[in-house]
Design a protein around this nucleic acid. Structure first.
Length: 733
RNA sequence: GGUGGCGUAGCUCAGUCGGUAGAGCAAGCGGCUCAUAUCCGCUCGGUCAGGGGUUCAAGUCCCUUCGCCACUACCA
């Protein structure tokens, strides 16, 4: 019996998974649990995918390191999967050191074998941030329709596809500067060259592994249309260094390293990882992913491994699910639409109930739409009305009228009479159907058949009418109950991969533990049963209304998102220190046209120098003697040779003639050194660590109706709101 | 722009190799009382998105139109 290596798609670390994302992890979990119960040696591996532009940019915005950001999200992911009872053997991270090692090794081999080529391309580059920019990080004016905020790849206004170099006045979303075209060199994996070897493998694997239909189709389309070279490097910092001269400043493109994460995460669990990953004779690899990921798993990742010329365990079964939609729309991480892992916990509905609904409706052959009405209907009708009811009515009837002990094996009308033989034939037929479905990873079909089996139990109960026969023919009635109790035992085994907690609870009613697939249909082992307790609570219509309101619609989207992320207010509190400071002297910067050098009293007793670009907007006399708002924990910076220790706050607006208007925020009522605070907060005594200018601007301050605010909260100084005298609304910097 | 997918009963979905359209829920009717207003049975319900083609036969294969969606793009 071959060992089974099971993976579910590595979730990108940068966001909180929603129910749609959870499908893969949950699917692999059922399969892994099933395999263990059937006695296969099983390993279930997953983890977070952490490298790439998205995390790097996000971390930059928040002024923390990518690793810190990833750690924060890794914890959130882990917690969600723990709550859903996912039985990973290991849930790791691609930022682990052995990931670098294995990825570099695979690259080296590809390179040695001549499957890596170099190409020169032109890319937009930001001088200010010293980085190349992805198309969507550039915005500018659309050359077709004049829309001022068109994205580098496509104008959202007129829909025309763009080349970022077409944009009029392009600007980088990262730092707001104007990017330039710059030549760079990248490495490409030569898929066309690997293709013949890939195809030999593909043909056999897709058939033997009984791949999901969408995987077969999409893969065929890819091969048919011809494979192209694909870039495997990027100009980024947050990633795996490329171990090749001339490319050492670059890192691998995430899609190249991400699938290798399956291997490296295994290696971080056990030194014996090669017994799994370099052992195709004894291991079958089952991968669970969403349909959006198919070519990476059926073409690119296998090509990477085949191209090494080494022995690797390649994909056996591909289980690629379709999409789970939400109330007629799409789940969306970026827009925050739908139910997220963290939300599911807060509903008070147990994990097994969520698992039930998601498996019962697993988007196995087509997309499925989650609706709250359907959620309630399926729980009440199927989970409770069918399965819950059979367990409850049978065990309640037994314990109420026949006591806790079951009759002996050979009592009157034994379980092996012709009548019951037929019953068990039916049961066993359905059970082997379920097992076959599960072997083919048809999880939904298997699960639905489990419920059909439960329904059969209800029907047998109903037709036997034990409430009538218990007096006229108690022996036969006892036998009926005994058979139904063994059916329930079988059901508890069959649901164990899906609803592990529930399976254990039913086992407790029957005085059993640790049953396995081999126990199915085996009529022995139960001697006493206990009175059942309610397995699942009915979901009321009001509850559903409340949940629908909470998790659908625009407001709910925002609430869900806010709960997950720190608000602007919280980020301000943690990162920005504002203090009142009195200007004691002002002079022109000798080497700059627009800069003043100000001496300020920040209450520390020591004079402090700041530099501000106010020439032309203010005269020296208009500034000196006034108290301004100082960003006091800003990292010092040299401006034309003069070190500025902090900056003053001013609102920006536009004059009637279109020129820029600068409006310094004065707080003359305050004492130098007074700490500013959010409305409702008491000013903190604690000194914050220094932040750089990018991190400061990542927390946007604005004047709204002349009042200085962050997020939706006013910032106060010495008990008064800070106001802008001239500019009513605009950014503050 | 390229690629892939989807459109079947009021709702959510099955439909294998082309062979008289299926399930669950909802709705209507009947039965039962062990069970969490639960369970069992029956009935109703479809121009298979529109059009064209191949075929003795098309939800299924081909072409086309419409609608929805996903992935992807300094080009593969």
């Amino acid at each position: 019996m071959k060992k089974r290596l099971i993976t579910s798609a590595l979730p990108y670390v940068n966001n909180i998974p929603h129910l749609g994302n959870l499908i893969q992890v949950l699917s692999a979990d059922v399969f892994a649990r099933f395999c263990r119960l059937r006695g296969y040696e099983t390993l279930y591996i997953c983890g977070t995918d952490e490298y790439g532009t998205a995390t790097e940019t996000r971390a930059r915005e928040e002024g923390i390191s990518p690793k810190e950001l990833c750690t924060r999200y890794y914890e959130i992911h882990s917690e969600i999967y723990r709550w859903f009872n996912i039985s990973f053997d290991h849930f790791g991270r691609t930022s682990a050191p052995n990931h670098t090692e294995i990825t570099q090794h695979i690259f080296q081999k590809l390179h040695e074998n001549g499957y890596v080529v170099e190409r020169e391309i032109e890319q937009l580059y930001s001088e200010a941030s010293q980085m190349f920019l992805a198309d969507r990080y550039v915005r500018g004016t659309c050359p077709h329709c004049g829309y001022a905020d068109a994205r580098g790849d496509q104008c959202e206004n007129c829909g025309k596809l763009l080349d970022p170099s077409d944009l009029i006045d392009p600007r980088s979303l990262i730092d707001n500067t104007r990017p330039v075209m710059k030549t760079t060199r990248h490495l490409y994996i030569d898929l066309p060259k690997i293709r013949p070897r890939l195809e030999v493998w593909l043909k056999v694997a897709a058939e033997e592994g009984r791949w999901a239909r969408n995987a077969v189709q999409m893969t065929q389309a890819w091969i048919r249309d011809g494979l192209k070279e694909r870039a495997i490097t990027r100009d980024l910092k947050w990633g795996i260094p490329v171990p090749l001269d001339g490319f050492r400043e670059k890192v691998f493109y995430v899609w190249f390293d991400a699938p290798i994460g399956y291997i490296s995460i295994t290696a971080s669990l056990t030194d014996n990882w090669e017994a799994w990953w370099r052992n195709p004779e004894q291991v079958d690899l089952f991968q669970f992913i969403g349909k959006d990921n198919i070519p990476f798993h059926t073409v690119i990742f296998p090509s990477s491994l085949i191209g090494t010329g080494e022995k690797w365990t390649l994909l056996h079964h591909m289980s690629s699910s379709e999409y789970l939609n939400y109330e007629g729309g799409q789940f969306s991480k970026s827009r925050g639409v739908g139910v997220f892992g963290t939300d599911a916990q807060e509903t008070g509905i147990p994990a097994d109930v969520w698992r039930f609904y998601l498996y019962y409706n697993r988007p196995e052959t087509s997309d499925f739409t989650f609706t709250w009405d359907d959620f309630r209907e399926k729980i009440n009708g199927e989970l409770i009305g069918n399965l819950g009811n059979l367990v409850n009515r049978t065990l309640a009837f037994q314990t109420k009228f026949f006591g806790n002990s079951l009759p002996e094996e050979d009592s009157a009308g034994t379980v092996t009479s012709p009548e019951w033989k037929e019953f068990w034939n039916t049961v066993r037929t359905m059970e082997s159907e379920i097992t076959d479905y599960l072997e083919g990873a048809r999880l939904r079909d298997a699960f639905r058949t489990v419920f059909a089996l439960s329904s059969y139990g209800n029907k047998v109960f109903q037709e036997a009418e034990p409430w009538k026969t218990r007096k006229e023919n108690p022996e036969a009635t006892a036998v009926l109950l005994k058979n139904l109790i063994y059916l329930i035992r079988d059901l508890s085994i069959l649901i164990a991969p899906y609803l592990p907690d529930t399976a254990v609870r039913i086992g407790e009613f029957l005085g059993l533990n640790a049953t396995t697939w081999d126990d199915l249909g085996n009529l022995g082992g139960i001697t006493t049963v206990s009175a059942p307790t309610i397995l699942f609570s009915i979901v009321e219509a009001e509850t559903i209304e409340e949940l629908r309101a909470r998790f659908s619609g625009t407001q709910a989207e925002r609430a869900a998102k806010k709960a997950a992320e720190p608000t602007m207010e919280e980020r301000f509190r943690e990162r920005v220190e504002l203090r009142a400071a009195k200007i004691t002297a002002v002079e022109r910067h000798p080497k700059a046209d627009k800069l003043f050098i100000e001496q300020v009293d920040d209450g520390s007793g020591e004079p402090r120098t700041i530099v501000s670009g106010l020439v032309g907007h203010y005269t020296e006399e208009e500034l000196v003697g006034h108290t301004i708002v100082l960003v006091s924990n800003l990292k010092p910076a040299k401006l034309r040779g003069v070190e500025s220790r902090g900056m003053l706050l001013a609102a920006e607006g536009t004059n009637e003639d279109g020129s820029k208007k600068v409006d310094v925020l004065f707080v003359d009522h305050a004492k130098p050194g007074d700490r500013l605070a959010l409305h409702g907060d008491t000013p903190s005594e604690e000194t914050l660590s220094q932040i750089d200018i990018d991190s400061f601007f990542a927390i946007p301050l604005r004047v709204k109706d002349r009042v200085l605010t962050v997020g939706d909260t006013a910032i106060e100084c010495a008990g008064q709101a800070v106001t802008a005298p001239v500019v009513p609304n605009g950014p503050v910097g």
